[in-house]
Each structure stands twice: as C-alpha cells, then as structure tokens.
Design a protein around this nucleic acid. Structure first.
Lengths: 143, 143
DNA sequence: AATATAATTGAGAATGATTATCAATCACAT
DNA sequence: ATGTGATTGATAATCATTCTCAATTATATT
C-alpha cells in the first residue's frame, strides 16, 4: 500500500506532471489534516509551517489531489466547498449540525446496497454518491 | 390544501411581511417552472413574462420561498445552486449525469427508513437529507 | 554537468454568483 | 388619507475561485 506521497508522485509521473516543492509541501500538509477542510484551510496550514505556497497554487493543486484519488469534495457548508482525505478509507456519509457545524461521519452497508439497487433500476452507472443529513446534534437540540 | 400562492401569502402575513407585486410575480413564475432551477432562471422567466423584477429581488425572495416551505435547495451543479418546488410533493432524491447534466428523480422508502435509523443511532434530529448519486446516464454510458 | 523544453509558479487582475447599501417607493393598518 | 416600516432597483461590494503572463523550475536528454 503506497503512502499518500508515493501515490501522488506516481499519479503525477503518469500524467507527465512535475513533482514540485509546492506540491510536496501541499501533500505534506494534507497528510496532517484530520478533519474536513477547504482551500483556505490548506493555505493557512502551509503558512503555519513556514511554506510560502500561494493560494493560487493551492487551488491549482486540488483537482490533482482529487484526480489522484487522495481527496474528494464531500459537502458544501456556508458557501464553502469542503474536502476530505479518502485514500485508504472506507466510504462514509455525513450528519451535519446546522447549528454548531459539527460533522459526524457514518458508514452504513444498506446505503451502499440501496445505491446499487437504485442505479440498476435506472440503468445508471454511479461514480460517486453523497448522502448528507442536516439537522441538530445532541448538544444543539437542548437549546 | 392551500395553493402555492395562498401558502406564500399566509407565510408573509404571519411574518408581518408584505405581499408585493414583485413577490406575486415571482411566485407566479415559480408555479409554472417544471424542473430544477437557479436564481437566474427565475429572473429569465420573469423577463419572458414582461416582468421587470430585479435580480436582487429574486435573490431576496428565495429565502422566503424556502422558509415558507415552497421550494428547497436540492443540489449544486456547475457552481450553481439549484432549487425545486417541494410543496405538496413527496420527498425524493437525485441521480445526476455528470456528462449531460440530466437529473433523474427517485423515491425510495428504504432511504427514508435508513435515515431514521441512522439519526436515532446518533441522537440526531434531522431537518433534511439529501442523497445525490453522480455518474453516467444510459445515453452517456455508450460514449 | 549543461541544455532544452514544457510545466509550474506567484502576483494580481478578472470572473461570476451572491449580498449589501441606500435613497425612493410602496403596502397596509389605523 | 396618513404614517410607518418594509421593499425595491440600481449599483457597489464581497468572496471564493479562476485566469493571465512573465519569470522560474523540474526533468529528460545531451
């Protein structure tokens, strides 16, 4: 099982793209990120680690990270696109608290089965599905 | 069962908001719309019907339509927020063809049950869920 | 190691959807 | 008919994202 960095390098090589310092620094920062993140979060983390990669380069690199199967766009919240790491992780879906913004991940076998059934019924070939449930988390219900 | 227009009027009155000509023209145009639409689509339809309601007012009215339970945001596609009418319609989810943009609606009882089960397990109170499956429709698979 | 070449970068301008501002107008209760 | 606060249109502002372009860099080849 290749590491994140190796997988990214291999992807770039296949596409005749270069493994630059900027791309190296971005992937290193992504590896450390735990939660859902947006473009600016990557940028802020770079600065925190004494890297001067520009925001433009962050935006340019995101599609490469997606195409290489390392991250995916998972949800839109407050006008922002959030991403998360997916390499070497099981697919899962999300509960999002509209009050505090907390994101709870869950995996459900039935969701996957159901997706297959629905796609077959509509002769549809799925590349991705996203189930997002919005509402109130335990804490926020009390208010 | 109140009509769209009546329901909107009642909502506005409850909130001490006014039923203006502009809001009337917007709701009339929404009633006629069949598919998923964005803010600009509403604006274009208004102009087609000799209405001069501004785009700013369209944007200002959308939250009112959502709060009154007449429409909901259903999906993001190509950087645009798409809405659809929901009043007096059964909840449903979507298959979206990433090639041609076709949107197929489907209803599945199991999706609803599953949502309840997951929310109970996480002590979460859902206000809304959205299941979007992206992939290739029958036509686009052949290419 | 030097060279060639196409890819990449940073800085800042451009874009495009959406939101805010504000003076003029309007809906509606009294 | 009047008063008051809500609403509107026009347009400026915002904010995330994308584009532009000259300067720089990675990598294959000599």
């Amino acid at each position: 099982m290749a590491t994140y960095k190796e997988k990214f390098k291999i992807f770039l090589k296949e596409k005749d793209l270069k493994y630059t310092i900027e791309r190296k620094e971005i992937i290193e920062v992504i590896i450390k990120l735990q939660n859902h993140f947006d473009a600016d979060e990557i940028y802020q983390q770079l600065r925190k680690h004494q890297s001067n990669v520009s925001l433009a380069t962050v935006y340019r690199t995101i599609p490469l990270l997606i195409d290489s199967g390392l991250i995916m766009e998972t949800l839109h919240f407050k006008e922002k696109v959030l991403y998360e790491k997916i390499y070497n992780r099981k697919h899962h879906d999300h509960l999002i608290c509209v009050n505090c913004g907390e994101i709870i991940e869950f995996y459900d076998e039935d969701v996957e089965k159901m997706q297959n059934r629905i796609c077959q019924a509509h002769q549809f070939v799925a590349t991705e599905h996203r189930l997002g449930i919005k509402g109130y988390c335990k804490k926020c219900q009390k208010k």
